[in-house]
């Protein structure tokens, strides 16, 4: 798949977010229970995003005595950015799953969960490093 194909696919996906009625034009309506399961998965991702955003707030508020200013700002902004990424993925994945179910195609797979897990692990390790190295205020 060339870069241009990927760009086309991305543009198509974003269009679908904003013209959602198009999803219902394709294929046939799946069992409503599958759609509800898809909705619950969407909400689970939204909760993950909320946890990251809340974590960002908490870092900014509760680590004032334990981290230097810039370490705190960097960590809080990283967590908030993670929350934004989770939110965007939640909508994108929900639309793509709904479309796949209508068309009887395989559900989309993605490496987002693995990437998110890696980022969270890196942040955790970095925090261990910060504490051990004694940069923590």
């Amino acid at each position: 798949m060339s870069v241009f194909d990927q760009l086309d696919a991305a543009r198509d996906a974003v269009r679908l977010w904003f013209a959602p009625a198009r999803v219902q034009e394709e294929g046939e309506t799946p069992d409503y229970r599958f759609s509800l399961a898809n909705e619950r998965t969407f909400l689970a991702w939204i909760r993950t995003a909320l946890a990251l955003i809340g974590g960002g707030f908490a870092v900014d508020q509760f680590l004032t005595d334990h981290l230097t200013h810039w370490a705190r700002v960097a960590l809080a902004l990283a967590l908030l950015a993670g929350g934004v990424a989770c939110t965007l993925r939640a909508v994108n994945h929900w639309v793509r799953c709904e479309r796949a179910m209508r068309q009887g195609a395989n559900l989309p797979v993605s490496r987002f969960p693995a990437v998110l897990a890696l980022i969270v692990a890196v942040i955790a390790l970095a925090m261990v490093g910060v504490v051990v190295a004694g940069w923590a205020g």
Partner: peptide, 22 residues
Amino acid sequence: LLPAGSALAVAACMLGLALFGA
């Protein structure tokens, strides 16, 4: 089915929270 507008609005709320947090 969950109206896609609602899903987008939920996402917009999350983006708002994250932006105001930042």
